[in-house]
């Protein structure tokens, strides 16, 4: 039961991050490795925000990262939009590296400690023998809220355009859907998710360093693949599946094997992909485009 809470919390973190990755992959077929650095920037915003009220710090993080994501698309990704996927991938690596170097330059490589929420809500609640961290509740609540908002957004006109573009970009454009606008929207939302991930992650870690987002981003990326490239529900499903696999393998593996936990996680992932090569939910990426 306690482990279930751990699964939910970890899965939610991965889901937040995975959705951000899946959104931009959906419309642009771009595997954005800079997403982890968007998160890192969000973390440093919280560091710099220091003692301003919590809501203001969170809001600045969301706004700045959202803006950064849109600006990155405009400056770095738009020129290579029609290039082959490898070029886009390399571009995202370059952006990632640039942002990391910038962080080292501005803040040093050692990292900065950060307190996101006041101490009163970083504690533990004891309910019927369970230890529930406030942070777990916040993590799940943020994820559910954003997920519901995203679902609501997807029903709006812009949301429908985004989903259409994710399924078949060319046909969407043939209907007059503006490519730049849709991709910009996707990046803005992706940035908001990166900021939300960074808030939860910073609260959980208490430390922001230049590689702040890297590991979470890698796991979220795996979640996206497991869930089905380009499928948003798939990304969420993949994230919780990965949370489940990693928590159970940590909990159940005997000590001698626990150091191979990540290898074990990847083994399960490979097995899933062998059974379902296109992921749990088949993404649109696999479908034929006009």
């Amino acid at each position: 039961m306690q482990y279930l809470i751990d699964v939910l919390s970890q899965g939610s973190l991965y889901a937040l991050c995975a959705l951000g990755i899946a959104l931009t992959f959906g419309v642009m077929r771009l595997i954005n490795f800079a997403h982890g650095e968007f998160m890192m920037v969000g973390g440093y915003v919280l560091v710099v925000a220091g003692d301003i009220p919590v809501w203001a710090a969170l809001l600045s993080s969301v706004i700045i990262v959202g803006f950064l994501a849109v600006a990155t698309e405009r400056i770095a990704f738009r020129p290579v939009r029609n290039a082959d996927p490898e070029t886009m991938l390399v571009t995202s690596f370059a952006v990632s590296f640039l942002l990391q170097s910038l962080a080292v330059l501005l803040f040093g490589s050692l990292g900065r400690s950060v307190r996101v929420f006041p101490p009163s809500i970083t504690g533990v609640m004891h309910i019927g023998g369970l230890n529930i961290r406030w942070l777990d509740i916040i993590t799940v609540a943020v994820t559910v809220t954003l997920l519901v908002s995203l679902m609501a957004f997807m029903k709006t006109r812009h949301g429908v355009e985004l989903r259409a573009a994710a399924e078949n970009f060319t046909v969407a454009r043939l209907l007059g859907v503006k490519a730049n606008q849709v991709i910009g929207t996707a990046f803005a939302i992706s940035g908001v998710f990166a900021a939300a991930t960074s808030i939860v992650l910073a609260a959980q870690r208490g430390l922001v360093e230049p590689t702040f987002g890297t590991t979470t981003m890698l796991f979220a990326f795996i979640a996206v693949i497991v869930g089905g490239m380009g499928s948003l529900p798939g990304a969420v499903l993949g994230a919780y599946a990965l949370g489940l696999i990693s928590v159970t393998s940590q909990a159940l593996l005997p000590l001698g094997l626990r150091q191979f936990r990540d290898a074990f996680i990847f083994l399960v992932v490979v097995l899933i992909l062998l059974l379902r090569p296109e992921g749990i939910l088949r993404g649109h990426a696999a479908r034929v485009r006009i």
Binding site: R157, V160, R163, A164, E167, N168, H284
Partner: peptide
């Protein structure tokens, strides 16, 4: 070129 993940109404709204 229907958008299979969208409803018929959403396709038309596009």
């Amino acid at each position: 070129g229907v958008f299979g993940s969208l409803t018929v109404a959403e396709n038309l709204r596009l």
